[in-house]
Amino acid sequence: MAWISKNWAMTGIIKGFIVTLKHIFHIGNRPIVTVQYPYEKMKLAPRFRGRHSVDQDACIGCGICESNCPNGTIRIVKYNGRWFPEFNLGMCLFCGLCMDACPMNAIKMDGGYELADYSRESLVYGPDRILFKKEVNK
């Protein structure tokens, strides 16, 4: 109870009240900072690591990404007569080692971040869902 006799005026609490009051009325660079997430999204950095996508012309199906993945996320599967990686995102660490390792720079991780799904099977992203074709300026 020493604190009452020392500081009966409760100046510490009053100081706190002033800080919260400043926030209520947004005084002095204290604006609302949140965004209304599903309706309004924040801009991602260009380097953001999200879902993988594979350049279908560049990928040579060499399997270096497969051997570099720390978690066994990647499997090389046949698709349309060529070999492409298949990502099991349920196991992915999003570390980016596959992207770094790819000798042809075919793997990008720009596929977004809203990846929740209802079953484990649908988390396996085969070539049909991750391939993209680079736009070539003619």
């Binding site: 604190w3 500081n7 409760m10 510490g12 609490i13 100081k15 706190g16 800080v19 919260t20």
Partner: peptide
């Protein structure tokens, strides 16, 4: 500075 004002001297927090 805000945190220090809000928390550091708060009597209940000290208690």
């Amino acid at each position: 500075v805000d945190y220090e004002q809000l928390i550091n001297d708060n009597e209940i927090f000290l208690l």
